[in-house]
């Protein structure tokens, strides 16, 4: 048996150990890597940053911890962005009963982070609303597009002063009569719930998305057609957003040339307060390691196959 034959039959547990060792090592070494953010990420960032302070944004959060490697980074970035821009938001899920609780945990953590940094802490009923889970995405999105006040009628929220009030009497929704009054809808998802939202609401409110690497390619046709204003895709999208939050677009520091340039827009500021590099920065190095391993695995597997075949042919002759 030649070396290449042995390589072809390598125990898969050895591959698993290599993966665990390399990927885990990468997690402990966060490195700020210079990137060229994807155009879809730049569009996402520019769209959020263009929303006037105090406006209301809809956040449909349809992810759970099964995809937290990507989706949690997306959601944390979104919260940091909205809070730094002083935007109000309403969050709900139309895809998974567990999703609202996962989102609540993240908001609590981001609020604790802001408190530690001496920044304003977002309060439920005043700065954001938690509407929980809606059991049927198709009907929920259709109803929201038809008549938002009817779709969310009779729902109440706690307010900082104590007690509960109708959500349409809170600061978040008091000026919202129809879905078009919200400046943007962001769908954070790892599933096809983004498709349903686009099909039912794209002509009523500007939609942006933060999706996993697997879901991303399915949303790109909607981005190309302009039905989605911007998308952050996968872990690269998480890091892109953090990089844009830290550097802005076409913003130069003194004599340095801008770290992110884009011909489509004049300039978009970096975020004024709070953390920028976070989970994306922590995981991005690991993504490099994992991809290198994957590419090496494909190359080695194929080289092994060719060499093994050649050896067999030579043996036959």
């Amino acid at each position: 048996m030649t070396f290449w034959d042995k390589m072809q039959k390598v125990d898969r547990r050895i591959l698993y150990v290599i993966l665990v060792v390399f990927v885990c090592t990468g997690l402990f070494i966060p490195v700020k890597i210079p990137v060229e953010p994807d155009p879809s990420s730049k569009d996402f960032y520019a769209t959020v940053m263009a929303i006037p302070e105090g406006s209301t944004v809809l956040v449909q959060t349809d992810w759970t911890n099964s995809t937290r490697g990507e989706s949690m980074g997306h959601f944390e970035n979104l919260m940091r962005l909205l809070m730094s821009q002083k935007l109000k938001f309403v969050f709900y899920s139309a895809a998974d009963p567990v999703a609202p609780q996962v989102a609540r945990t993240v908001i609590t953590r981001i609020n604790a982070e802001r408190k530690a940094e001496g920044l304003y802490v977002y309060q439920v009923g005043k700065d954001y609303l938690d509407l929980g889970y809606f059991a049927n995405a198709e009907a929920t999105n259709t109803n929201m597009g038809t008549d938002l006040r009817q779709a969310w009628a009779n729902r109440t929220s706690k307010v900082p002063e104590g007690g509960e009030v109708d959500i349409f009497k809170t600061d978040v929704l008091k000026d919202i009569r129809k879905i078009g009054d919200c400046k943007m809808m962001v769908v954070v998802t790892a599933s096809a719930s983004i498709d349903i939202a686009i099909q039912r609401l794209a002509n009523k409110v500007p939609i942006t998305a933060m999706v996993t690497g697997v879901t991303g390619p399915g949303v790109l046709p909607f981005y190309q057609s302009g039905q989605v204003k911007g998308i952050a895709i996968g872990l690269k999208g998480v890091y892109d957003t953090e990089y844009l939050m830290a550097n802005g677009i076409n913003i130069s520091n003194g004599d340095e040339r801008p770290k992110v340039t884009w011909a489509k827009t004049s300039s978009v500021d970096k975020v004024a307060e709070g953390k920028t590099f976070a989970r994306g920065n922590q995981y991005y190095g690991t993504l490099h390691v994992a991809l290198v391993l994957l590419i090496l695995a494909v190359i080695l597997g194929n080289v092994g196959m060719f060499m093994s075949r050649r050896a067999t042919r030579k043996g036959g002759e």
């Binding site: 890597i33 210079p34 060229e36 996968g234 890091y239 490099h288 991809l291 290198v292």
Partner: peptide, 8 residues
């Protein structure tokens, strides 16, 4: 292309 360091 997903590897920012390499792309850069």
């Amino acid at each position: 292309n997903l590897m920012g360091a390499l792309t850069y």
